[in-house]
Design a protein around this nucleic acid. Structure first.
Lengths: 197, 197
DNA sequence: ATTTGCAGGTAAATATTATTTACCTCTGAC
DNA sequence: GTCAGAGGTAAATAATATTTACCTGCAAAT
């Protein structure tokens, strides 16, 4: 009775759902407000009732996806001890998310970073939250002697993030398949042990 | 007498130059044809004389940048022996390019990957060429025993590329400073030796 | 039982931008 | 000399995003 008291109007839900559907098929730029309204079965004006503009709708869709992602991440990390083990898990979970939620991957990898407003959006706030989680694990690893202490944590984070994202880019763009387990195993190994023989 | 016989018309040059200038200040999406024409001091119609559309102009600007980059890379690699040394150099050169040519970095990291046409553009052809160079170095390193032989070359390439790009993202987006030498040293070390103690 | 405020929704006007069209003007090869 | 074609312009048109004014049903407050 106390949770989700807020009833979300049917029209708004249809708009969000239409956006998700269309983003699976086409790029954000190529979608018109009229496309979205038609797919949702509402009028164009209604979109502006709930969202500031087209981009605001995009950010909302990303925010919903990211909320699910963060819930899953928190859950996945439960009961795992040690920075290496946590890192292994977080890499696996991230790849799994990018691989199995292509719209999510496309939005975050390709569609949002080119606008200023994104960096003021709620969605970006969640991304920063994820960043902090990852950074905590890295610092824990350094403090506990599992990771090297002569690499700046921010660089480690960039390497992890960057490697994962780049490895999932072809999936997002060309729909090339990704094997989550294999990718996670290789990327974790590569990052932990390096490429030098 | 045989090279650069082609005279590029003044208007076209001004358009390209205007695009570069504007991209340093604002995002691609926020630029209008009328902005570009005004900055270039030409009429809007002329832009369409030389470029298919706004994106085609963007791809052209990227192509010019990438040509310079490739020339520099080929030069930088001259006389360097060994895969590790070549890798070290290519990482340094890439970071240097992203750090000192912010428009280039912004275009490639933020503006082009969200459109289908990009992947048919000449600019993308050059990116693939760079990819091949990097992949060759990796294969050389594996064959020569400098790199581990149990990591797929494509993953190694993604890790290198992804780490570099992610490390330069904040520079591209927020204009945060990057120290090329420091970044190159740390990233190379991290990728070669891994993050595990 | 009315009224009334207001959330959900529509339809059409307007504003903004991209793109096309028709034309003008100079120049250098024939 | 002319004339084809490159460089360029101005204005019309098309495509889209956004705003405006309005309609409708319904859950309180009177």
């Amino acid at each position: 009775m106390k949770k989700t008291e807020v009833i979300i109007p049917a029209g708004k839900l249809k708009i969000i759902e239409a956006m998700r559907t269309l983003l699976d098929e086409r790029t954000f730029e190529s979608l018109t407000i009229s496309d979205i309204a038609a797919t949702a079965g509402v009028t164009e004006g209604l979109i502006y009732k709930y969202f500031k503009d087209k981009r605001d709708l995009l950010h909302h869709v990303l925010k919903e996806h990211y909320e699910h992602f963060l819930v899953q991440i928190e859950r996945d990390l439960q009961g795992i001890d040690g920075a290496v083990n946590k890192l292994r898990k977080i890499i696996w979970s991230s790849i799994e998310r990018y691989a199995n939620h292509r719209v999510f991957a496309r939005i975050i990898l390709l569609e949002v970073r080119n606008s200023e407003e994104y960096f003021n959006s709620e969605a970006y706030g969640l991304v920063k939250q994820f960043n902090r989680i990852l950074l905590e694990i890295i610092k824990e690893g350094i403090a506990g002697g599992e990771f090297r202490d002569n690499l700046p944590p921010a660089y480690i984070r960039n390497a992890i993030f960057g490697t994962i994202e780049h490895s999932c880019l072809n999936r997002a763009i060309f729909n090339e398949p990704v094997s989550t387990n294999e990718a996670a195993r290789i990327i974790t190994d590569l990052l932990l042990n390096g490429i030098k023989r």
